[in-house]
Every structure is written in structure tokens, then in C-alpha cells.
């Protein structure tokens, strides 16, 4: 079996939750594998992250470089081409950095690439057996990945449950000397932080959240009236913000706002992982959707199969009644 690696995501000296999830996923591919964590960055923060990674992985490779203080995918790709064996199996979290890095890295290493994996069913000969979702989560697929020439796999955040408490007692090895040339044609300039809107949806106990099922901008009124009757705040999924019907600060999800309400009403929302990834603290989730097969019904506590354009006004009327 080829050597297995996990690429560790981190920010401001804090290791990401996905670091522990990748360790679980790696064990599902090969329970006996000695997985090596790869930690790239710079400064004192990097050492903190390496220490945290050593609790999860028997070996940690540290790569420190001033130009890598912010992870530029083109530079990290060069680094990894320089240090990885061609048949390596490397796990990444399926986040915006890996989406930037991994497809091109797979070409440069000539490795197989499987993105956004939600399940692992072990090995079958030279193939890794994986589970993905397609069509906005409406279809599941078994995938066979020929790993003979190596494989890069990105794992959907939240799909693998880490066991708490274990300490791998790993050793950190400074591999910075192997980094090599990381010059790039893409230069990082700055981070522009998302604007804060007039309404802070993170503070609301109850959210009436609308998705593409609202169909038209004018129909938003129906959601606002319901929210008013409930003493709730209106939030939304991404297509509503893309259409400029509501401001970005109302968008729940991985590329929007993370909310922690007590009650979450998902109205005409399909339940993509990027949307659900923005809901924390296990609220009571009610989903109203006209498609009985919508993935959201697997994640909600209570489901109602109805047309939201009829259901919301009827509920409002009853509450005001």
C-alpha cells in the first residue's frame, strides 16, 4: 500500500475540525495505514498547528516558508509535487482551498482524483471504494478509484465522525528544506472580509429561511409576514442572494453566515451541504418542500410536503388568527 497523507487545514494557528475527520476517513481506506499529516504555513502559528496535528497523526511533516504564510494553491501545488511520491494517497478536506489546489495537483502528479467524498467503503484490489453524491444530493453513487498511480481524495466536511480524546503521540519532522521552488503566476493580495448587514441573523433564535422554492422576489413578502407573526428573522439560501433579492449577510451556509438558532424553518430549500454547513448548535429544523425526496428531509426534525407559497400564508393566518 502506498503512503497515505492528510493535508491539514488551519487558520490563525487553529487546526480545522476536518483534520480529525480525515484521520477517520484514512482508517476506513486502510485500518493499518500510518498516515502522515502535511502542515504548510509559516511562523509560530505553524508550530501550534503541528502540535495539534501530532495528537491526531503518528507523523507530521512541517513545511515552513514565508511565502506560504497565506496558502496560495499554485505554490502549495509546486511544494507537494516536489515532496510527494507519485503513488501517494492524499486526503484533503473538500473546502475552497482544496477545490483550488487538488484538481491541478492530480494532473501534475498524474494521480486519480475524486472530489467531495461522503463515504469510504475500503479497498477492493487496487481500487478505493468511495461514496459521492450527485445532482444536488438527490442521487448517491458508488465510485471505484484506481489508486495504482496514486490518488487525491477530498472529503466533505462533517461526513466522518472523529472519536474524541485519543492522542496519536505523533512526531513532527521539519521538512522545510525540501520545499524547493514555489514561484507562482498568481499572487495573493488581500482578504476582503464579508460585510455586515443591517440584520444580524446570527443573533436570532428563530429563523424563517427561504430558498429557491420562493420562486419570485415578490414572494419574499410571504416569508417576511410569517417571520413577523412568529417573532422570527428571515434568512435564505444562496440562490436568493445570487439573484440579489436579499443581502449577502442573510445567507446561511459555508460561504455565508454560520447561525445557531433554536428553531430553523427551511422553506423551499433542498438541503445542500454548503447550506446545512452553516447551521450549528443542532436547532430544531422544520423543512417545508414540495418534493418528498428533497435531501433536506433527511436532515430535518420535522418535514412537511407542501407548496411553501400556500403553506406560509396559511400558517401566518393561523398564527395571527
Amino acid at each position: 500500500m502506498a503512503q497515505m497523507f492528510a493535508y491539514i487545514a488551519h487558520k490563525c494557528g487553529e487546526i480545522d475540525d476536518t483534520a480529525a475527520e480525515l484521520a477517520v476517513a484514512a482508517k476506513k481506506i486502510d485500518a493499518s495505514a500510518e498516515v502522515t499529516a502535511i502542515v504548510v504555513g509559516d511562523g509560530a502559528e505553524l508550530d501550534t498547528v503541528c502540535q495539534a496535528a501530532a495528537k491526531l497523526y503518528p507523523q507530521v511533516w512541517k513545511f515552513a516558508h514565508a511565502d506560504l504564510a497565506y496558502p496560495n494553491a499554485e505554490m502549495v501545488r509546486k511544494l507537494l509535487v516536489n515532496v510527494l511520491a507519485a503513488d501517494a494517497i492524499v486526503l484533503f478536506p473538500h473546502d475552497t482551498f482544496a477545490m483550488d489546489l487538488a484538481p491541478g495537483l492530480a494532473v501534475k502528479l498524474d494521480s486519480a482524483y475524486v472530489p467531495d467524498i461522503v463515504g469510504v467503503d475500503g479497498m477492493d484490489g487496487g481500487a478505493i471504494k468511495l461514496v459521492r453524491q450527485e445532482y444536488a444530493g438527490m442521487a448517491h453513487a458508488h465510485i471505484a478509484c484506481d489508486a495504482a498511480n496514486g490518488a487525491l481524495l477530498t472529503m466533505r466536511p462533517g461526513s466522518f465522525q472523529p472519536e474524541a480524546g485519543a492522542d496519536a503521540g505523533g512526531t513532527v519532522t521539519d521538512k522545510s528544506g525540501d520545499i524547493g521552488d514555489v514561484s507562482a503566476k498568481r499572487r495573493f493580495l488581500e482578504i476582503k472580509v464579508a460585510e455586515v448587514g443591517d440584520v444580524d441573523i446570527t443573533k436570532a433564535d428563530v429563523l424563517v429561511s427561504v430558498g429557491r422554492g420562493i420562486e419570485e422576489q415578490d414572494n419574499l413578502e410571504v416569508a417576511e409576514e410569517l417571520a413577523k407573526a412568529m417573532g422570527a428573522v428571515v434568512s435564505c439560501s444562496r440562490p436568493i442572494v445570487d439573484a440579489k433579492w436579499l443581502e449577502k449577510s442573510r445567507q446561511v451556509g459555508t460561504s455565508g453566515v454560520t447561525v445557531k438558532p433554536k428553531v430553523y424553518l427551511a422553506m423551499g430549500i433542498s438541503g445542500s451541504f454548503q447550506h446545512m454547513g452553516g447551521i450549528k448548535g443542532s436547532p430544531f429544523i422544520v423543512a417545508v418542500n414540495k418534493n418528498p425526496k428533497a435531501p433536506i428531509f433527511q436532515m430535518a426534525d420535522v418535514g412537511i410536503v407542501e407548496d411553501i407559497l400556500e403553506f406560509m400564508p396559511a400558517l401566518t393566518e393561523k398564527l395571527e388568527g
Binding site: A141, H142, A144, D146, A287, Q298
Partner: peptide
């Protein structure tokens, strides 16, 4: 090198409690 073996319907947990009846 990456092949879809099949599409399948996963065994789901309990999922949501679906409310039945009239509106």
C-alpha cells in the same frame, strides 16, 4: 481511473418526522 459503479439509494436514518393530513 475514476468510475461510477452504480447509483444507489442509501439506507437513511430515521430522517424527519413527516407531518401528514390536511394543510
Amino acid at each position: 481511473r475514476v468510475k461510477r459503479v452504480d447509483y444507489f439509494t442509501p439506507e437513511m436514518g430515521e430522517g424527519a418526522e413527516i407531518l401528514e393530513g390536511s394543510m
